[in-house]
């Protein structure tokens, strides 16, 4: 134990990332629908009931209020909502083909600042029994959960006061195996030791972070139960499995990637594929 690197590793491991509780202010909510009259009202009511923790005021955009993406962005820019609630493929029939989000939502998520809740399409069948009732079971998922205070704060804010907050971190086996393959070709590094210690360290950091979330929320939101899901595997498959297994009412993901114009790859995959579970994109 003599080199700078060895001691720096010890201190880096000691430098835990602690969760800081800072609940988001979500008052003005904008519900965007391409429905009309009664159908629109029904949808608005179900959205209001689902996001019962958001007290409003509520604002609603219906079919005739916008057509193009520009119209929508202008209205959102003027209204400055704290939360947007909508669904995929506005003003489009493409919702029948589950391969994209639709042009309005694609741009809206990336351009606007407030979080966007993506609800199942009103015409879509196969929505599970438990879905769209309340936010008793909220799941925040990320492939690097450590330090994602904003994500966890939104998720905990959305969870009913006596609900359950699931925090899920999945280490991608594909990436891990790729690096291990490279390591196995470097004689100076013991592959078995590297596999074991790197995997252990990769999982220990989000685990410690979730422990700190649990500790902080036990003071701030004492009736919320925090459940940790930290493992490795094929990311999307594991996320889907975890969401189904724990009957998540709302899944919270982070979409903005400061290094690119496009949405974060994992968040996009989830947003496209999980069409029957409400999502909150922050």
């Amino acid at each position: 134990m003599s080199s700078v690197d060895q001691f720096a590793s010890v201190f880096n491991a000691a430098a835990k990332t602690i969760f800081q509780y800072k609940p988001p202010v979500l008052k003005n909510t904008l519900i965007i629908t391409d429905l009309e009259s009664t159908a629109a009202d029904q949808y608005v009511e179900s959205a209001k009931s689902f996001f019962a923790k958001t007290k409003g005021p509520w604002d609603v955009l219906k079919k005739g209020d916008f057509t193009t993406v520009k119209d929508l962005l202008d209205i959102v820019g003027n209204k400055k909502p704290d939360l947007i609630v909508t669904y995929r493929h506005l003003h489009s029939e493409a919702w029948r083909w589950p391969h994209s989000l639709g042009e309005h939502l694609d741009v809206l998520i990336q351009v606007t600042e407030p979080p966007v809740a993506i609800m199942p399409h009103p015409d879509r069948e196969g929505v599970p029994e438990h879905a769209m009732k309340n936010t008793a079971n909220v799941m925040a998922i990320n492939d690097h959960l450590t330090g994602e205070d904003c994500l966890v704060n939104h998720a905990s804010h959305m969870t009913l006061s006596d609900g359950t907050l699931h925090l899920t971190h999945i280490e991608d086996d594909v990436v891990f195996d790729r690096y291990m393959e490279v390591i196995s070709k470097i004689p100076e590094i013991d592959t078995d030791v590297a596999r074991e210690t790197i995997r252990k360290q990769l999982l220990s950091e989000p685990s410690a972070y979730i422990d700190s979330v649990e500790e902080v929320l036990s003071h701030e939101l004492p009736n919320i139960k925090v459940i940790k899901h930290v493992s490795h595997g094929q990311q999307l498959e594991e996320y889907r499995k975890s969401i189904d297994e724990h009957k998540a009412d709302l899944v919270v993901v982070k979409a903005h990637d400061p290094d690119q114009q496009a949405m974060n790859a994992t968040a996009y995959s989830i947003a496209v594929e999980l069409r029957t579970t409400p999502l909150l994109i922050v």
Partner: peptide, 17 residues
């Protein structure tokens, strides 16, 4: 040297934080 290595490593980690 050992003193410098220990305190120096912590300094780097702490200053980054």
């Amino acid at each position: 040297v050992t003193a410098m290595i220990i305190v120096g490593s912590l300094t780097i980690v702490a200053c980054k934080k």
